[in-house]
């Protein structure tokens, strides 16, 4: 926790809210710093130094003088390590991530084209996963004694065990190859025309893959959270007062049960963003994940690092957005009590 300056005497709640936010901001700053440091350190941790990245001596010899200069400039060979680090940070903050070796274009340009697709894919998946996981979790908790509840529990455990890439392949086999209902690859129609219908159609299978592999954890957590609240004393007291069951669930159980679920949704964001690497590869979706895969295959390290950085920043920003809404839901966080 970062201690803020002694705040001006304002409303008590507002001050604590500010401190809560400052603490979280410091945390996100630390995450970004670690991501940047990893990005800086990993190529240099290679036995043989960063030039090893560019493959065999023959491949190295094929690089043009311009490319050599660019690489030397980017990695700052020969300078002391801390100066290299500052050069690196300066490049990142001026949005200069170097040149992609496989595409021979600035990394930033390549990433800029891919980012909207990933945002669309991951954003849609987060919303659907959250709605599905929470709704089913509530049903699973309320119907725990019945067939529906245990069926849901079993289903969630099985889907949680499926590898994303394999589920994606099975969906392609079933819906694209056998039933010919949905497109197999890409994000837009065959002629490259962007229409809402084509984009939506191409989104169905990737989003389904991410949602089905992602909702299980959220389901299990929501279910156990609601079950705990349902056996708690305030709820038992409401029972004793003769409050109807529906009303108990709606007014006394759901809100306290769903608050901790908020934290799990934030963890889902990271899971789904990482999942985009796998799913975009399977469905040849033109986003950051597919780009990461291509960069790995082509050993295009500048592009790989750039994609990693942008994916991490995306996760951090999405987390911050979800986090900023939490004190609106939970009065205890507004009062600075929830840590």
């Amino acid at each position: 926790m970062v201690q803020t300056e002694t705040p001006a005497p304002t409303e008590r709640g507002r001050r604590s809210y500010g401190r809560y936010t400052a603490g979280r901001l410091a945390q996100y700053a630390a995450v970004l710093f670690i991501a940047l440091t990893l990005n800086f350190a990993l190529p240099r941790a290679l036995p043989g130094g960063p030039l090893k990245l560019f493959g065999s001596p023959e491949a190295l010899a094929q690089l043009t003088a311009e490319e050599r200069a660019q690489i030397a400039n980017q990695y700052g060979f020969g300078q002391p390590l801390h100066e290299q680090f500052f050069t690196y940070l300066g490049n990142v903050f001026s949005l200069d991530l170097g040149m992609s070796l496989s595409q021979r274009r600035p990394v930033m340009e390549v990433l800029g084209e891919a980012l909207p697709w990933t945002l669309l894919l991951v954003g849609t998946s987060i919303v659907i996963t959250a709605l599905l996981g929470v709704t089913l979790g509530v049903i699973g908790a309320l119907r725990r004694r019945k067939g529906k509840g245990s069926g849901l529990l079993g289903g969630a455990i099985v889907f949680d065990s499926l590898p994303q890439f394999w589920l994606g392949m099975l969906l392609i086999v079933l819906f694209s190859v056998q039933l010919r209902m949905l497109p197999t690859f890409g994000a837009v129609g065959p002629d490259g025309v962007v229409t809402i219908g084509a984009v939506a159609q191409h989104l169905v299978l990737p989003v389904t893959t991410l949602t089905l592999t992602g909702f299980g954890y959220l389901f299990l957590y929501t279910r156990s959270s609601l079950l705990t609240v349902l056996t708690s004393e305030p709820v038992q007291h409401a029972h004793a007062r003769g409050v109807p069951y529906r009303q108990i669930v709606r007014r006394h159980a759901l809100r306290p049960a769903l608050l901790p679920v908020h934290t799990i949704i934030m963890m889902e964001i990271g899971f789904l963003a990482a999942g985009s690497i796998v799913v975009e590869t399977v469905f040849a979706y033109p986003g950051l994940g597919r780009l990461t895969f291509n960069a790995i295959s082509a050993r295009d390290y500048p592009l790989m690092q750039g994609a990693f950085l942008v994916l991490t920043v995306m996760v951090v920003v999405m987390n911050a957005v979800a986090d900023a809404t939490y004190p609106l839901l939970d009065p205890r966080a507004r009062a600075g009590g929830a840590r």
Binding site: V31, N39, I277, V315
Partner: peptide, 13 residues
């Protein structure tokens, strides 16, 4: 802090 960084992405990198 570690929990915010996506595990799979770190692993791949």
């Amino acid at each position: 802090i570690m929990l915010i960084l996506p595990e799979l992405i770190l692993f791949i990198l």
